[in-house]
Amino acid sequence: MDLKEKIAGEITISENPGYTIKKWREEFNISQMELSKFMNVSPSVISDYEAGRRKSPGSASIKKIVEALIKIDENRGGNVIRRYNSGISSDALLDIKDYDHDISLEYIATKINAKSYSRVDLRRNIRGYTMIDGIKAIIEFSYADYTKLYGWSSQRIIFITQVYYGRSPMIAVRAHPLKPAAVVYIQPNNVDDLAVRISELENIPLLKTDYDYKRISDIMSSLR
């Protein structure tokens, strides 16, 4: 079942369709105003549906609402769509993408102004990347979620935001049987010597970029 079918199905069978519409609108981080403008309807239409003041929408209206949510997210870069297609519902997953060909890690490093912490050779190829919020991932991810981070190939970069001491992400990498091709910290506060040591023991390059993690869309644009 794709995401459109999932959302439409939930709204259709819900005892409170308006609440379900609101839940998905907020999941996509779309305001009532933005949704109504995209659908070319009055904001009161969306508000009335969600508050139960308007008769539950029919199948045609549900289809328009769902398609609007999906299209708005696609126009923003498709982050929510990718998160759900990956099988990870947590918003700790910020972005995930697989490439259809090899790309040099050294080339990617220059594109995002990344510098290496360790003495591990950067001459290797990448087939994709995954970007996660380090704090939320620790709190919310299950063991199975960590496996799903690798998409179609472990030959990928794991980007991590919200890095304070720099130790725990590399400990998690060492403990998990699947290994990434490289790890990049986004604007870390600090990097522990143990993280660098693990990087060298596992032969996994550990890099950092000083891009502001609050503007990770800039990194995403470069990576795409």
Rank of each mutant, 00 (worst) to 15 (best):
K63D: 05
W24F: 15
S56P: 02
R224L: 09
I139C: 11
S217D: 15
Y19A: 07
S116T: 15
L93P: 01
I216Q: 00
K115I: 13
A60M: 07
Y107W: 05
K179F: 14
I157S: 00
E74D: 00
K214L: 11
S221G: 05
I96W: 07
T12M: 10
I126L: 07
Y19K: 13
E27Y: 10
N203G: 08
N189W: 14
I70W: 03
I204A: 00
Y164N: 09
R167A: 05
S118A: 15
G166L: 14
D193C: 13
S168C: 01
S217A: 12
L94S: 01
I198A: 08
E74S: 04
P57D: 09
S14L: 12
K111I: 13
R156K: 13
W24V: 11
R215C: 02
L178M: 13
M33T: 10
I219F: 08
V196H: 07
I171Q: 14
S44D: 14
I139S: 08
D121P: 05
Y84H: 10
R224K: 15
L3D: 07
Y99I: 12
L122V: 01
I11H: 03
I70R: 03
T20E: 13
K37Y: 00
G128Y: 08
V184Y: 02
M33H: 00
S168I: 12
R25H: 02
I72A: 04
E202Q: 09
S142E: 09
R25F: 07
P188S: 05
A195W: 03
S142K: 12
T20F: 00
G166S: 09
Y84M: 09
H176L: 14
Y146H: 00
L194S: 01
I81Q: 06
I81H: 04
I186V: 10
S199V: 10
L149E: 07
V45S: 00
S116H: 06
A8L: 04
V173N: 02
G166A: 14
E10R: 03
D98K: 02
K63F: 03
K71A: 08
K64T: 02
P57E: 06
S86V: 06
I65L: 11
K179I: 09
K6Q: 08
R123H: 11
I46N: 01
L94M: 05
Q162H: 14
S217Y: 12
P205V: 12
R82H: 11
I158Q: 03
G9L: 06
K64G: 00
T20A: 09
N190M: 11
I138D: 11
F28Q: 01
R53D: 13
Q162I: 14
Y211I: 12
L149A: 07
I30N: 00
P188G: 06
S222A: 08
S90T: 14
I62D: 11
G18S: 06
L223P: 05
D98V: 04
